[in-house]
Deep mutational scan, measured.
Amino acid sequence: SIEEEIKKAEEAKEKGKTFIHGDFVATTEELLDELLKRLRKKL
């Protein structure tokens, strides 16, 4: 679910890890923020 993806992305951000969502690879905090923004729009 979208909620689960958001939670996983937030955890990755806290730990400074890379998060992959489909073909979107978030390797930096900026990219994770962008991904979180996109996911929240889908809610």
Rank of each mutant, 00 (worst) to 15 (best):
E5N: 07
L31R: 01
K42Q: 14
E29N: 12
T18K: 08
F24S: 03
K42I: 14
L31A: 11
K8S: 07
T18W: 14
E14Q: 10
K8W: 09
L35W: 05
E3R: 12
E14T: 08
S1I: 07
K41F: 06
E11S: 05
D33K: 08
A9M: 06
K41S: 07
K7D: 03
L43T: 01
K7N: 06
D33H: 06
G16Y: 08
K37T: 11
K15C: 15
A9N: 03
E34L: 11
L35E: 02
E5W: 15
K41A: 13
F24H: 03
K41I: 08
V25K: 05
E11D: 12
S1W: 15
F24W: 09
K42C: 11
H21E: 04
K15E: 08
K37D: 13
K17W: 15
K15N: 11
E14D: 11
G22R: 04
K8V: 03
T28A: 06
R40M: 11
K15T: 11
K7A: 13
T18N: 07
T18L: 10
I6M: 03
E10C: 14
K8F: 04
K13P: 02
F24G: 04
I2P: 03
L32V: 04
I6F: 01
E14I: 12
E29T: 13
K8D: 03
L32Y: 10
L36I: 14
I2A: 04
H21W: 15
D33L: 10
A12L: 04
E4M: 09
L36K: 00
S1G: 10
K42S: 09
T28M: 13
E3N: 06
R40Y: 15
L31S: 05
G16W: 11
E3A: 13
K13D: 01
K37S: 10
E10V: 08
F24R: 00
L35K: 00
K37W: 06
A9V: 14
A26E: 02
V25L: 09
R38D: 10
T28P: 02
K42T: 08
I2T: 05
F24Q: 02
T27V: 07
K13H: 03
I2V: 11
K7C: 09
F19R: 00
A9W: 07
L36E: 00
L39A: 00
R38W: 15
A9G: 04
E34S: 04
I6D: 05
E3G: 07
A9T: 03
E30P: 03
E11K: 04
D33A: 08
A9I: 14
G22P: 04
E14P: 01
S1L: 10
I20D: 01
G22K: 04
A26M: 08
K17L: 15
L43N: 03
E4K: 07
L32K: 01
K42M: 15
K41G: 07
R38P: 01
K41R: 08
T18D: 06
K42L: 15
L39P: 01
I6Y: 03
T18V: 13
K37R: 14
A9F: 04
E4G: 05
E29M: 14
I20M: 06
K41N: 11
L36M: 02
K42D: 11
E30W: 12
S1E: 10
V25F: 12
E29C: 15
T28W: 12
L43M: 05
A26N: 02
R38H: 15
E10R: 03
E11L: 09
K7T: 08
F19S: 03
R38S: 11
E34D: 06
E5F: 14
K42H: 12
L31N: 03
E29W: 14
K41M: 08
E30F: 09
R38Y: 15
R40D: 10
E10S: 05
K17M: 14
E29F: 14
K15V: 04
S1P: 07
D23S: 12
K8I: 05
T28S: 10
A9R: 02
G22Q: 07
K17E: 14
I6V: 03
T18Q: 11
R40C: 15
L32M: 04
V25H: 13
I20C: 15
I2N: 02
K7R: 15
T18Y: 12
R38F: 15
A12T: 02
L43A: 03
K41W: 08
I20R: 07
L32F: 14
A9D: 02
D23R: 01
R38K: 08
D23G: 11
K37C: 15
E11T: 06
T28I: 10
D23Y: 11
A26S: 03
E11R: 04
E14W: 10
L35I: 08
G16L: 07
R40I: 12
L39W: 05
R38G: 07
L35Y: 03
K7Q: 11
G16F: 09
L39M: 03
K15W: 10
F19K: 02
K13Q: 05
K13N: 02
G22F: 09
K41H: 10
G22I: 13
F19E: 02
E34N: 04
R40N: 11
G16V: 04
D23N: 12
S1F: 11
K17Q: 14
E30R: 09
L31T: 05
K8R: 13
K13G: 02
L32G: 00
D33Y: 08
A26Q: 02
L36N: 00
K17D: 12
E10A: 03
E14N: 11
E29G: 12
T28V: 11
G16M: 04
I20Q: 08
I20F: 08
I2E: 02
A12Y: 04
L43Y: 07
A26P: 05
L43V: 02
L35Q: 00
I2R: 01
A26T: 03
E34K: 10
R40G: 07
E11Y: 11
L36S: 00
K15R: 08
R40P: 05
E11G: 03
L43P: 00
L32T: 00
T28H: 03
E11P: 00
I20S: 07
I6L: 11
K15I: 05
L39Y: 01
I20N: 03
I2Q: 04
F24T: 08
G16P: 00
T18R: 01
L32P: 00
K13T: 01
F24C: 14
